[in-house]
Nucleic acid binder design. Sequence first.
DNA 1: ATTAATTAGGACTATTTTAGTCGGATTTAA
DNA 2: TTAAATCCGACTAAAATAGTCCTAATTAAT
Lengths: 134, 134
Amino acid sequence: MLKITRKVEYALIALSQMQMKRHTALTSVKEISTQNDIPYEILAKTMQLLARADIVEAVKGPRGGYRLIIDPSQIKMTTFFEIIEGPMGFMDCSFDSDCEQIQSCAIRTPIQRINDSIRDMFNNISLQDITRLS
Amino acid sequence: MLKITRKVEYALIALSQMQMKRHTALTSVKEISTQNDIPYEILAKTMQLLARADIVEAVKGPRGGYRLIIDPSQIKMTTFFEIIEGPMGFMDCSFDSDCEQIQSCAIRTPIQRINDSIRDMFNNISLQDITRLS
DNA sequence: ATTAATTAGGACTATTTTAGTCGGATTTAA
DNA sequence: TTAAATCCGACTAAAATAGTCCTAATTAAT
């Protein structure tokens, strides 16, 4: 529980690495995957998610790759997680939405408190806070 | 990702419910499981974990059950999670401990930052904060 | 034009984690 | 003695995550 996934890890590796370059420079999936020993296909798909979300820009063809096109300080970690993992699991109610016991359910508020705590925290942490060098 | 597990949920349901009673009163697994439609066996095991950790006290035999024996404001949520889930997954490094790339690993610090953020937060939230009524 | 390097993306399998079940043992109030 | 409760290990099922495979589209370099 409360564990970040590999896809998030891989994305953070990639972005950290891209942040170290000139912001116009391109970084290919191959480059990142070999240097960090990350499965090429998974990283490729993860980068595609970031491209669709306009976090990075893709340049196709030989010598192509990705470059950052946003300021990482402007992206909240909640947003980042959602780009990679889809709608945040921790905000879902664990019971089905047609749950019959909504009245007597003793857990709803406690779970909401936990979820709210996590979400509030990551709403106040930017991608920059996580990937910056120092 | 970042989702709390059923076992944690069930434990919170149980504890919330116990907190509503006189603190000497006993609550059985059957009572909690039927009232909240929780699988009996799973809840039973979860309560056993809480008993081993001296969060609750078990009274065996007919009319037995569990009662809270600690002040929920004295238990940090990190501790609570560890009682139920074992050592916190989010503090583990995702790479094997014999990872050869520890020098070049670009992600170690970012992951630590996320883990530290989560841990710090839950070190500062008590069980009472989560299960209290108001 | 052709080739090779790159991104794009769907379908699939494997692995790990989580959830749940089963069978029995121990304790103890009635 | 019985029945209701906790205790506990071994097992199965389901879901989530991780990883693989294959093919298409784009484009710089030759």
